[in-house]
């Protein structure tokens, strides 16, 4: 099939950007979205141009590197799917596809479709860990954890840190990301000890990094490729209140 792509091109963080049009011809239905872009890029390179820069790595939906807004939706309209697992059979011949980088003050554009998501790393640095030294820990079965709690922790830990929640949020908020980490660790006895410092540290850091506030639009859950739930945000709010008592 033949497609028209409208792709955000921006040389560097300070350079102005705009949407450029590209023709993607002879695209097969079996291709993944990124493979379609590979084909377009090979054409650009052969013509001596600068290929479209985009982030990607594992191409199996787990590393969280790929990050494109496709027709206004982070990772595209397919539910619970990362860009790398989105396939061209979901598009039709003649379609025009808009491809843009994540938007948000905390995610400045690096080049084209690549943004700087290091703010998410700094959120983790502000408390998204258990302060344990290597070695000197008790046997793994010394502290029992109810299966329900372990399952909740795992549900929250599904987060791949791609930032789609921030990209989808009309306020550019990272509440779902923070909520997932806070819930994971607060559900486990090992993480409970520092729960107060963690929740306040991460929440404050979120504002410092320029993320917006949560308005409970729930766009984040809808865009999350791993289906991380907004109920964790309620949990985050509870943990925050608890931290004051």
């Amino acid at each position: 099939m033949d497609l028209t792509l409208m792709v955000w091109r921006q040389k560097s963080a300070d350079a102005p950007g705009k949407l450029d049009q590209y023709a993607a011809k002879g695209i097969s239905r079996e291709m993944s979205f990124l493979e379609m872009l590979d084909v377009v890029n090979e054409g650009i390179v052969k013509a001596g141009g600068d290929p479209i820069a985009f982030d990607h790595d594992c191409r199996e939906g787990i590393c969280g590197t790929c990050s494109q807004v496709i027709n206004g939706v982070p990772h595209g309209i397919e539910e619970r799917t990362t860009v790398c697992q989105l396939h061209m059979r979901h598009f039709k011949d003649g379609d025009t596809i808009y491809i843009e980088p994540w938007h948000g003050k905390a995610f400045p554009v690096v080049r084209d479709l690549i943004v700087d998501r290091s703010a998410l790393d700094r959120l983790i640095q502000s408390g998204g860990y258990v302060s344990v030294h290597t070695g000197g820990v008790p046997d793994a079965n010394a502290i029992l954890i109810p299966k329900g709690d372990a399952d909740t922790a795992m549900d929250a830990a599904e987060c791949i840190g791609c930032g789609a929640c921030v990209a989808a949020c009309p306020n550019g908020s990272a509440m779902l990301f923070v909520a997932a980490k806070v819930t994971q660790l607060a559900s486990l006895p090992q993480g409970r000890v520092e729960a107060s410092e963690r929740v306040r540290g991460m929440i404050d850091k979120m504002s410092d990094e320029g993320f917006g506030n949560c308005s409970n639009h729930y766009e984040c859950q809808a865009a999350c490729p791993k289906g991380v739930k907004v109920s964790f945000i309620a949990k985050l709010n509870r943990e925050y209140m608890k931290s004051w008592f």
């Binding site: 860990y129 258990v130 344990v132 290597t134 070695g135 820990v137 008790p138 046997d139 793994a140 502290i143 372990a150 399952d151 922790a153 795992m154 830990a157 994971q184 660790l185 486990l188 090992q190 993480g191």
Partner: peptide
């Protein structure tokens, strides 16, 4: 043991 202590679910 180490991973459990870190909060690996």
């Amino acid at each position: 043991d180490q991973c459990v202590a870190q909060g690996v679910p």
